[in-house]
């Protein structure tokens, strides 16, 4: 296909071009300043952490080799040639993976339940200013401190094991879900609330009959997504001794049990995939029902 484009004569083109340049000039300047500030910050940061591109370049094949190495058995054969040898610890690892899932589930539910009771106190349409302030600062604190820091402290308080992991995940979940739940509650239609209040309903009745029917599907959606995130969180809880498969992975990496590293990583990634697909299916159903 041939396309003919008519060029305007220069005399007509010049003022148009000038107008265009003027229009973009300011944006260009702003973009340039922004990029230079960012560039300066990046350079400063690179200097601060000792970022060494030469080191990276010389070690990049170590990185790729590492992946080659972890997919090789101790006798030098690729892992797929002998899956039984590769997954020699399948039973042990499956148990730990199950524990990881259970830690994620229990932590999510505990956190979600407390978040459920907190969110009505943090919502601007259902709570007074003081209650709201307290509830919000509480939720903020719970989600800003990373879960693994809570896990480190809980391991000292409650002893090693999955209990510390469950509690740490629960607290972080409480903070994260509490905020999301609050946002949902703040966006409801207030007419049903007025209706129930006008008939003399108590606060619990108002929430149960006027708020809940509007928010439950949103709550369920966020909780499911949080469960997925928490599985990833639970997979590293073992790094600090708070249960799950992380401990085993840490040992395998630190002691250079190469094929074990790949075996555990593959198990984690596959589980994440499966959870992703399952939550997708459940969400689809949920949105149809709700």
């Amino acid at each position: 296909m041939t396309v003919a484009i008519q060029h305007l004569p220069d005399r007509q083109l010049a003022p148009l071009l000038r107008a265009y340049r003027q229009a973009v000039f300011q944006r260009r300047i702003r973009f340039l300043v922004g990029t230079s500030v960012l560039f300066f910050c990046v350079m400063l940061g690179g200097w601060w952490v000792g970022f060494d591109i030469a080191l990276l370049a010389s070690k990049i094949d170590t990185f790729t080799n590492y992946f080659g190495r972890i997919f090789t058995l101790d006798d030098g054969k690729p892992v797929l040639s002998d899956p039984v040898e590769w997954y020699w610890g399948l039973i042990k690892w499956s148990k730990l993976l199950g524990e990881t899932l259970l830690v994620a589930y229990t932590g999510t539910i505990l956190g979600a339940v407390i978040a459920f009771f907190t969110c009505f106190a943090a919502a601007s349409n259902l709570a007074g200013a003081t209650t709201r302030w307290v509830a919000r600062r509480f939720l903020e604190f719970c989600r800003t401190v990373p879960e693994i820091v809570f896990a480190l402290i809980f391991v000292l308080a409650y002893g090693l094991g999955p209990m510390a992991g469950v509690l740490a995940l629960a607290i972080h979940t409480l903070g994260a879900l509490g905020k999301l739940y609050t946002e949902i509650v703040e966006n409801i239609d207030m007419k049903p609330v007025e209706g129930i209040t006008s008939t003399g309903g108590s606060r619990a009745e108002t929430i149960f009959y006027a708020v809940l029917p509007q928010v439950w599907s949103g709550f369920a959606t966020y909780t499911l997504l949080r469960f997925e995130i928490n599985f990833r969180g639970a997979s590293i809880m073992g790094f600090v001794g708070a249960g799950g498969i992380g401990q085993e992975l840490l040992t395998a990496v630190r002691k250079f049990y190469y094929s074990d590293v790949s075996a555990i990583l593959v198990m984690i990634v596959v589980t994440v995939f499966v959870l992703d697909i399952l939550t997708g299916l459940v969400l689809k159903r949920l949105n149809r029902v709700g």
Binding site: Y66, I148, G233, I236, V269
Partner: peptide, 21 residues
């Protein structure tokens, strides 16, 4: 994405050594 940042950190440590890099 299925692998957590902390696990990536472990792997990169065995490549470039301990430290912020």
């Amino acid at each position: 994405r299925g692998v957590d940042t902390l696990i990536w950190a472990l792997i990169w440590i065995s490549v470039v050594g301990l430290g912020p890099f």
